[in-house]
């Protein structure tokens, strides 16, 4: 993991897309085996009964993937300040998700160097999650 500086970031810069394969086991690992969760996350039949066509991928897991994706890009001296996510359609376990992102703004705000990104998860090429992430980044001049 490297350090990325505010001055080196350009608006419209695109992040390298990243693929994740959601599974029922990953959902269980995320929440913990002994923690209560929606049974549709771990059981395809239950997901179908709830109208999702299979085991439902937890929204908070997708948000965690997006947060991690941006954090990996921004480097270990950057701090994720906020993540805003809209879940556009349910995702089903077993179908790969491609996470992509683009820098949409950079600015100085209350003494911090803020970079704003828009991210998306794509399932079968269709967006299932849209996200706005704000990161405070280090400066070369600090």
């Amino acid at each position: 993991m490297t350090v990325r500086y505010f001055e080196d970031v350009s608006v419209d810069e695109e992040l390298e897309p990243h693929e994740e394969l959601p599974t029922e086991d990953k959902a269980i690992d995320f929440f913990g085996r002994n923690n209560p969760m929606n049974p549709a996350f771990a059981d395809a039949e239950m997901g179908k009964k709830q109208g999702f066509g299979g085991a439902l991928v937890p929204g908070v897991l997708k948000m965690a993937w997006i947060t991690h994706y941006v954090n990996e890009w921004a480097g270990h001296e950057a701090t994720v300040k906020s993540v805003r996510v809209a879940f556009r359609r349910p995702d089903v376990a077993g179908k790969p998700l491609v996470i992509a992102g683009r820098v949409v703004d950079k600015r100085q705000e209350e003494g911090e160097n803020i970079v704003e990104l828009e991210c998306v998860t794509l399932a079968d090429g269709q967006p299932s999650v849209r996200a706005n992430v704000q990161v405070a980044m280090p400066s070369r001049n600090a």
Partner: peptide, 10 residues
């Protein structure tokens, strides 16, 4: 119920 929007601030 299904989660449709979520915002976190840290």
């Amino acid at each position: 119920g299904i989660l449709t929007q979520l915002e976190w601030r840290f």
